Simulated scan of single mutants.
Amino acid sequence: MSMHQLPSEMLRSVFQNVNSQDIPKLRSVCQMFNSVIKENYCYLPRVAYLVKIYSVNGEIMIANMKSGDINGSTQNLFDFDFNHWREIGIVELEFEIINECDSIKVAKAFTLILREMIRTRQSQLRKMVFTNVRLSADVATEVKQLFDIALYQCENVTVENSNLPISFHSDSLKSAKFDHFRWISSTGSKTLPSDIILRKLQNDMKNAVNKRSFLAEMDSVSVEAACDFVEEWLRLPVASFFNLSFHNCDETWKTRFLEECERRHLTHNYMEFQSRTHTNSHVKISFSQDASTCCIWPVFDVPARTTGQSVCYARYFRDF
Rank of each mutant, 00 (worst) to 15 (best):
E259A: 11
V311W: 03
F15P: 09
S123D: 06
C295Y: 08
C154H: 07
S281G: 13
L77R: 11
V283Y: 06
L151D: 02
H169Y: 07
N64H: 15
Q21I: 09
W253S: 04
R318Q: 14
V14Y: 00
G68W: 07
W85D: 04
S175C: 02
F320E: 12
V230I: 15
T277N: 02
G68A: 01
E96W: 13
Q202M: 15
I196V: 15
I166R: 05
M10A: 14
N64M: 15
K105G: 15
C42N: 11
L77S: 11
L125S: 01
G68C: 07
E59D: 09
F78Q: 10
E142W: 03
K211Y: 00
N161W: 06
S292C: 11
M32Y: 15
I60G: 04
V56A: 00
E116N: 12
D301T: 02
G308W: 05
F317H: 06
Q309D: 05
T255D: 09
N163K: 11
F78E: 09
S286L: 14
N207G: 01
R121M: 05
S288H: 07
L6Q: 02
F229A: 01
P24S: 05
E96Y: 15
D195L: 04
R199H: 13
A176R: 03
M205I: 01
L198C: 07
N34V: 02
K108D: 14
W85F: 14
H180M: 09
R256Q: 15
R46M: 04
I196P: 01
L44F: 07
K200S: 08
V47Y: 11
K144I: 06
F80T: 05
M218N: 00
T255W: 02
E251I: 10
R318E: 13
N76F: 04
T131Y: 12
P45V: 11
P237I: 06
K284S: 10
A63Q: 15
G58E: 01
S213P: 00
V91K: 12
T131P: 00
F246Q: 07
S73H: 08
H278L: 08
Q153P: 06
V14K: 00
D228V: 01
N210E: 10
L93F: 02
T306R: 14
S35P: 00
A208D: 14
F300D: 09
V106E: 10
H4M: 14
F241C: 07
W297G: 02
A291R: 12
Y316G: 13
S172G: 00
